[in-house]
Amino acid sequence: MNTRHSATAAAVAPSSGVERHKPGLLERFTDHFQRYWQLWVLSAPALVFVAIFAYVPMWGIQLAFRKFDSARGLTGGEWVGLHYFEQFFTSPLFGEILWNTFRISLWTLVTGFIFPIILALLINQIGSSKVKGFVQTVTYMPHFISTVVIVSMLNIFLDPNNGFIGKLFGDESLLGSTTAITAVYWISEVWQHCGWNCIIYLAALSSVDPSLYEAAKIDGAGRFQLIRYVDFPAILPTAGVLLILQMGSVLNVGFDKIYLLQNSLNMPATEVISTYTFKIGIQSAQFSYSTAIGLFNTIVNFVFLITANAISKRVSNSSIF
């Protein structure tokens, strides 16, 4: 009897008194790799590309905290800490540059987020598949026009003397106006990319169960009710994720376009962080200073991304991480 009791106790003891071994990160990765090694092999080129061109260059971030010395390389300069950040924050141009960047970015972000949704909802209501395909093709074709061509078109169309749009505003040059240049920028951005950006919303709408439309029509729903109660909820999760991703680049005004639109008249309204960094880093060869400005820009974008993700996760339970 005692022998049986001892054997039972010995069998129960390991499960009750000894904690089970939890596999570490390396063990879990090894097990995952052994199970799905084919997928890892397929992903290897992309992982190597990201590592080389996204993570390895991060080594140069320390240049923002060092005085650049061409003879000693990126890591050989004198350590100056936050000197270049303080130089940027105390610069007379800091407030103007930051305000220009926020103003242009937020206008572009808001309009570039809303109008593709509206366009996708309108295209989805077109009954004829041929007309729908034609409208979709026409609207996303401007996406493939290069930025240089777009700026050239703006200069021609908005010319106060010969441009058919510029003539409507008299002698005032829209490209030389500090108040109108922001509208010119975001309107041209929406026109160029609205059709392309709405494709993902059309894909989300295509997955809606047709029985939902039939049930709504039986209940007497019109077109606006169909959009409000069927289409809009279907694209809301997709819109939330895209908004989070766009918030991560809220200060990244497209350098090429805004730089090409700049002139001596609109400079006070078009000097943004990206153009200022280019002029400081490339034209003036102040590499440490420009690196500090770029790092500040990245940190602000990262904060916006984390904040937008947290708010979206709390409000709509949709997030990217």
Rank of each mutant, 00 (worst) to 15 (best):
G176D: 08
S177Y: 06
T178H: 07
T179C: 00
T179D: 15
T182P: 02
A183I: 08
V184P: 11
V184K: 02
Y185N: 05
Y185H: 08
W186N: 04
W186Q: 04
W186E: 03
I187D: 03
S188V: 06
S188A: 15
E189P: 00
V190I: 12
W191R: 03
W191D: 01
Q192A: 13
Q192P: 00
H193E: 09
H193S: 07
C194S: 14
G195P: 11
W196G: 12
N197C: 00
I199S: 12
L202F: 10
A203I: 10
A204D: 05
S206P: 04
S206R: 05
S207C: 11
S207A: 15
D209H: 09
P210C: 09
P210L: 04
S211W: 01
S211G: 10
L212W: 05
E214M: 11
A215K: 05
A215E: 14
A216V: 04
I218C: 13
I218N: 10
D219W: 12
D219E: 15
G220C: 11
A221D: 13
G222Q: 05
R223M: 13
F224E: 02
Q225C: 13
L226P: 00
I227C: 10
R228E: 09
D231V: 00
F232L: 15
I235L: 13
I235Y: 01
L236A: 13
L236Q: 11
P237A: 08
T238Q: 12
A239E: 06
G240R: 01
V241G: 01
L242M: 14
L242Q: 10
L243A: 15
I244V: 15
I244M: 10
I244N: 05
Q246T: 06
Q246E: 07
M247S: 12
M247C: 15
M247F: 12
G248A: 12
S249K: 15
V250E: 03
V250I: 15
N252V: 06
V253M: 05
G254Y: 07
F255N: 08
D256H: 02
